[in-house]
Design a protein around this nucleic acid. Structure first.
Length: 804
DNA sequence: TTGCTAACTTAGAAAGCCCTCC
DNA sequence: GGAGGGCTTTCTAAGTTAGCAA
């Protein structure tokens, strides 16, 4: 069997990736509302037909289905193995279903109760809110559908091909890389910092200094040796940096030997509102107790946000708010709809305005204070080096902003106190001191983890951490390792593909499902898709947790055979929509998996991420589902860069090519963003600039023509010179026009696609570095300062020959 | 095998800051 | 010099994965 099925239809693939998934852009309002509707419909169906225990019946069906599947496929002689699995799995599902059924019932009860509570009083206001929401929705629809298409006068259009396997150029690791990745760090070293490396210490100051240095130069608009100065600066900066990638690494599992830090910065205490800021309930002035007032301000601060119009948000908020009220307040305030937060909201707007209008000196003072905090708390010492901490501030209290239809949105995120905090540091370090009158929950010394501080949040009960900045050794090493794993996958991906294709024919349902799921993960870069607890989070899915309702099968669609239509809410409730032609065998398998199932049944009922990842581990050490995403993203970037870059292009055109390659990856990974609020306007502004530039070009050409004519008559030096200068002027304006047009194309194509996520998390930075070096593009055009810091290892080690 | 949790990565939104243009 | 806009940074939610205990 040929190993390139994934790529045979690459053209078709490219089409659906760039057209369909592009066409079906973010539809946040809509986000899986349709799913819900379907689900609800199904639920009510179930409720009608299965009075006792819907889950039980459903599961029996599942079993029946699977037996049928087997028989249909000529698997009458069942393997012992398969039988065992089936039975055990069956048990699991029964349990699961029962649990679910119970939960459902509970959920329904709650719903009813809540609905009752809500019914009175709020109806009126909510109606208005609904109207507003609809209005906004309409506006949003209008603005996206009626978007002004920028004329691509320069002939740039989106690249068509996305995912093709490039020629296998082998797997290379420079001796430098090889050495650095493999060498273990000696264990006997005492890492207590006798002397901290000075280069790191300077970092904060340098950052500031550099900003000051660069500013005035930028204003001088590309005069003279600005480029040179910048280059020198960058070079100097590089020389001073700690090249951890050239040093030995700790033995496996050991993250650090010495760690010292100052602990977290807590949210400032609540400041009560001034007396003139009033709160009204049912038209009457009410002075709230400090605790109740604080929680009320959280709501007031969000009053303009769509969240506060959502039913779940309001219910959750009101419930938690009441817990903070005094008994009297609780008795009085019984209806959120009668609460008037407008004065509070107005007050915060004024505060924000006042902050904007502060004098330079005042702003400077705040900046300095922030810098002081950063210097004191924003760095730690880890194994002799001063490293930047990513998030040294504890999350302030507020209202939980879950994404999508999150059942817990609006709940009160409680204030974190020192007594909630676990500190992690070296035994022999100077421990952080808890704020006066407080103590830490615990101080531990665990060098096998990377976090400095942790606490448990009250919404989901999950643990939150303070960790190091992406530029740190500990994060960089891990990042580097991630891409090395993806490169290892490259070496054996063909074999793996052949294996899963064989498995499509397996006698075991479990194996077939695993093989089809893996095919999707590989071909479409889907996420693994863990199981989620219902009612705890928004209903989102990944590959293994896809349900029947999330796909549609078409024997033929738009002239293509065996098309699968995916439509599901993915991570962050971002809609994934795609129409994919698949192999016939995959299609038939899917039909089988779906047979006799309800829309809300699992598509892969014999599979979960744990089973899948265990299997992957057997295929390649360190292989997990998410490695496919990294691998496919990086290989796509490399292949797209090869395809799209034209060596003769100027720098802006080459950068457009880069962005397009990046965009192909973002589309593959379904990285979407809400179109910027000012998109249409900024696009129009840009178009205005382009038009003006065109006029200018016409003028310049006219002037050149007349200068030429003049020179023909006069034939003197002066007029010759004039012609030359006019020629240059035309050239200059042409370049400027082209730059603007490229910018417009880029911006238009980027309207709803977020490039940052893939750039930061999926694309081996060495590909970009190599590309920059090969085509003479300054790296600053691709990576900003923070990104350069994060990818310092790649900047240093990749030369132009690097191949992923 | 399952369920649970800890640890860590990936993600988009929002806030903040700074540059450009008038 | 200030308004507007876009890029950068921060924030924190939401994923994945590994490992452990029952």
């Amino acid at each position: 069997m040929s190993g390139d099925h994934v790529h045979n239809d690459s053209q078709i693939e490219a089409d659906f990736r760039l057209n369909d998934s592009h066409k079906h852009k973010k539809d946040k309002e809509h986000r899986h509302k349709e799913h819900k509707k379907d689900k609800d419909r199904e639920k009510s169906k179930h409720n009608n037909s299965e009075h006792k225990d819907p889950s039980e019946k459903k599961h029996k069906d599942k079993h029946k289905n699977n037996d049928k599947h087997r028989e249909k496929d000529g698997e009458k002689h069942r393997e012992k193995d398969g039988e065992k699995h089936r039975d055990k799995n069956g048990e699991k599902h029964d349990k699961h279903r029962e649990k679910d059924g119970e939960k459902h019932k509970d959920g329904e009860k709650h719903k009813e109760k809540d609905a009752e509570k809500h019914r009175d009083g709020e109806k009126h206001k909510d109606k208005h809110r609904d109207k507003d929401r609809e209005k906004r929705k309409e506006e949003k629809m209008k603005s996206s559908s009626g978007s002004v298409k920028v004329k691509k006068a320069n002939g740039f259009s989106s690249p068509v091909r996305v995912k093709d396997e490039p020629e296998d150029d082998g797997f290379h690791m420079s001796p430098k890389e090889n050495k650095a990745m493999k060498r273990p760090r000696d264990d006997d070293e005492d890492y207590k910092p006798k002397k901290i490396k000075s280069e790191d210490e300077k970092k904060g100051k340098k950052r500031k200094q550099e900003e000051e240095d660069i500013k005035p130069k930028k204003k001088s608009k590309g005069k003279g040796n600005e480029g040179e100065v910048k280059k020198k600066k960058v070079k100097k900066e590089e020389e001073e940096k700690w090249k951890w990638w050239e040093e030995e690494r700790h033995a496996d599992g050991i993250k650090w030997k010495f760690l010292e830090h100052k602990g977290p910065v807590f949210a400032p205490p609540y400041e009560p509102l001034p007396d003139n800021v009033k709160f009204y309930y049912d038209g009457n002035l009410v002075k709230l107790s400090p605790k109740a007032e604080e929680v009320a301000t959280f709501f007031a601060k969000m009053l303009d946000h769509e969240y506060t119009t959502k039913d779940i948000f309001r219910k959750n908020f009101f419930k938690d708010w009441k817990k903070e009220m005094t008994a009297d307040e609780r008795n009085l305030i019984t209806n959120l709809g009668k609460c008037d937060f407008n004065a509070m909201s107005q007050y915060f707007k004024e505060q924000s305005e006042a902050r904007k209008n502060m004098t330079k000196e005042e702003k400077q003072k705040i900046k300095e204070e922030n810098e002081r905090l950063l210097q004191e708390y924003g760095f730690c010492v880890m194994d002799n080096h001063r490293e930047r901490i990513a998030n040294f501030r504890i999350e302030p209290p507020g209202l939980f902003r879950g994404r999508g239809d999150h059942p817990k949105m609006g709940k009160l995120k409680k204030r974190i106190m020192p007594e909630d905090i676990i500190i992690n540091c070296s035994k022999d370090s100077k421990y952080p001191v808890a704020p006066a009158g407080h103590k830490w929950k615990e101080v531990r010394h665990d060098g096998k983890v990377t976090w400095l501080v942790s606490w448990t949040e009250n919404i989901q009960g999950s643990i939150k951490y303070i960790m190091l900045n992406p530029s740190s050794r500990i994060k960089g090493e891990k990042d580097w390792q991630k891409y090395e794993t993806a490169r290892r996958l490259k070496m054996c991906v063909e074999k793996i593909r052949n294996t899963y294709k064989e498995d499509w024919k397996s006698k075991e349902m479990k194996v077939r499902q695993r093989a089809v799921a893996l095919y999707f993960i590989d071909k479409l870069a889907l996420r693994a898709g863990n199981e989620k607890e219902e009612g705890e989070t928004a209903d989102t899915v990944g590959c293994c947790s896809l349900r029947v309702e999330h796909i549609n099968l078409f024997q033929e669609l738009d002239g293509q055979e065996f098309v699968v239509e995916f439509d599901f809410p993915g991570k962050d409730s971002i809609r994934y929509y795609n129409k994919v032609p698949v192999e016939k065998r995959v299609f038939k398998n899917l039909q089988l998996f779906m047979e006799n199932k309800q829309p809300d049944d699992d598509l892969f009922d014999r599979l979960n991420t744990s089973i899948l990842n265990k299997h992957l581990q057997d295929l390649m050490e360190g292989l997990t589902a998410k490695v496919f995403r990294t691998y496919n993203a990086s290989i796509t970037l490399q292949q797209q860069l090869n395809e799209l870059t034209n060596g003769d292009d100027n720098v802006p055109a080459k950068i457009l090519s880069y962005n397009r390659a990046n965009r192909a990856v973002a589309i593959l990974c379904n990285h979407q963003r809400a179109p910027p609020k000012t998109f249409e306007k900024s696009m129009m502004n840009l178009q205005g600039k382009i038009d003006a530039k065109k006029d200018q070009l016409m003028d310049a050409r006219r002037e050149l023509k007349s200068a030429k004519a003049d020179a023909k008559v006069k034939r003197d030096e002066k007029s010759k010179k004039l012609v030359e200068s006019k020629k240059k002027a035309v050239q200059r304006v042409e370049e400027q026009l082209m730059k603007l047009e490229v910018q417009a194309t880029d911006r238009e194509e980027n309207k709803q696609i977020a490039l940052g996520t893939s750039k930061l998390n999926y694309l081996d930075p060495r590909i970009s570095v190599a590309w920059c070096k090969k085509y003479g593009i300054p790296i600053e055009k691709i990576y900003n300062k923070t990104q350069r810091e994060k990818f310092a290892w790649a900047l240093d080690m990749a030369d132009e020959d690097f191949a992923f």
